[in-house]
C-alpha cells in the first residue's frame, strides 16, 4: 500500500448478505436485520460467539429515538457480553474501524452491519441535521437541494459535458452484514476471500462554501492512500447520479468497469464493499475499488482496494 502504513495483518471480506426494499411496511429494524446477520454468519459456518469484534453503522435520527442502535444488538445476541462498537455513519466506516481492530492479536473475525428504514421519515430533512448546527442546519437545506448546488456547480464549470438531471433523493429501506477475517482464519472460512489490500477515508470541511464541489479531494487522497490506481473494476457509492462523474475523475477510473449504486442511506456504502467482494469472489475483477460516501455533496469518502490474492 502507498500513502499509509501497510496493515500488519491481512484482512479479508469472507461473507456478506443484504436486503433492500423500497419500503419495509411491517418489520422493525431488528426484525429486518436478524435474518441478514444470520445469513452472513451462516454462509461461513459462524455464530455470534465466534466473532471477535462487532460494529455497526446507522443513524438514530432515521429511526427517531435515541440509542436505537443499541436496540439493534438484539439481532446479534450480545450474551455473553461481546466487544462491540457503533458509528453514526454509513456501515462502510464501521468496516474501517473493524479492519483496524483486527490488527490486534487475538481478534481474528469481525461482524459489520448497517441498517436503515428512511421510508418512515423525511430523509431529505433529516440529513439537514448533519450540517453545521449554528449557521446551516437552522435553514433546513434539504439533502437534494444541496446535491443540486453541486450539480449546478458542475454544469457551470463546463468540465463535465452533460451533467445528469437530479432525481429525487433515493429512498429505500434495507440492511447489510459483512464478515471479516484475518490471514489463515479467512482461508479456513472461504475459498474466495476478498483481501483488503488498502483502505483509507478522508473528510472535507463542513462548510460547503469553502469546498470546490466539482472535485473530491477527499476521494483523491483516500484513493491514493488505498492504492486505487490500476484497478480493473470499481463499485462506487453514488447517492446522486452527477456524483459519479466527480468520483470517476477523482479515482482515475479510465478503463475500469464501473458499477454505481445509491442504496439505502447508512447502508449503501457497506453494500458497495460487499458487492466488490462478490465481484472478486466471482472472478469478475482482479483488483477492485470499493467506494463509500457520507455527508452532504460527497463530504466524506472511503476507498478500499480488494484483491483475490493476499499480499
Amino acid at each position: 500500500m502507498s500513502g499509509q502504513a501497510a496493515l500488519r495483518r491481512d484482512v479479508a471480506i469472507v461473507s456478506w448478505a443484504s436486503f433492500e426494499t423500497p419500503s419495509e411496511p411491517a418489520r422493525n429494524e431488528v426484525e429486518m436485520l436478524l435474518p441478514v446477520v444470520q445469513e452472513a454468519l451462516g454462509k461461513v459456518g459462524l455464530t455470534q460467539q465466534d466473532i471477535g469484534f462487532t460494529v455497526s453503522g446507522s443513524s438514530d435520527y432515521l429511526q427517531g429515538f435515541p440509542f436505537a442502535f443499541v436496540g439493534a444488538l438484539d439481532a446479534v445476541g450480545a450474551w455473553p457480553p461481546i466487544r462491540e462498537s457503533h458509528v453514526e455513519m454509513d456501515g462502510a466506516f464501521a468496516l474501517y474501524e473493524a479492519v483496524n481492530v483486527l490488527q490486534e492479536e487475538g481478534i481474528d473475525t469481525a461482524l459489520v452491519y448497517a441498517f436503515a428504514r428512511p421510508s418512515r421519515g423525511e430523509v431529505d430533512r433529516t440529513l439537514a441535521l448533519q450540517l453545521d448546527p449554528y449557521y446551516v442546519a437552522p435553514l433546513w437545506p434539504d439533502a437534494r437541494g444541496l446535491a443540486a448546488l453541486q450539480a449546478q456547480a458542475m454544469k457551470d464549470s463546463g468540465r463535465f459535458g452533460d451533467v445528469p438531471d437530479l432525481p429525487p433523493t433515493y429512498v429505500a429501506d434495507g440492511c447489510v452484514a459483512v464478515v471479516l477475517a484475518v490471514g489463515d482464519r479467512a482461508r479456513e472460512l472461504t475459498k474466495t476471500p476478498a483481501w483488503i489490500r488498502g483502505i483509507d477515508h478522508r473528510i472535507e470541511p463542513p462548510s460547503l462554501g469553502v469546498r470546490d464541489l466539482t472535485t473530491s479531494p477527499s476521494t483523491i487522497a483516500a484513493g491514493d492512500a488505498a492504492g486505487a490506481a490500476g484497478a480493473d473494476a470499481a463499485w462506487l457509492h453514488v447517492p446522486y447520479p452527477h456524483q459519479e462523474l466527480v468520483l470517476r475523475e477523482a479515482l482515475g477510473l479510465s478503463g475500469a468497469t464501473v458499477d454505481s449504486a445509491a442504496g439505502p442511506v447508512m447502508v449503501g456504502g457497506l453494500e458497495r464493499l460487499a458487492a466488490a467482494a462478490a465481484g472478486i469472489a466471482a472472478g469478475k475483477a482482479r483488483r477492485a475499488v470499493a467506494h463509500a460516501t457520507s455527508g452532504p455533496c460527497l463530504q466524506q469518502n472511503l476507498v478500499a482496494v480488494l484483491e483475490g490474492v493476499a499480499q
Partner: peptide, 11 residues
C-alpha cells in the same frame, strides 16, 4: 415480545 431474543440473537 420484540421478535428476537436479545441474548441469543435468534427470532
Amino acid at each position: 415480545p420484540r421478535g428476537a431474543c436479545s441474548m441469543c440473537g435468534v427470532a
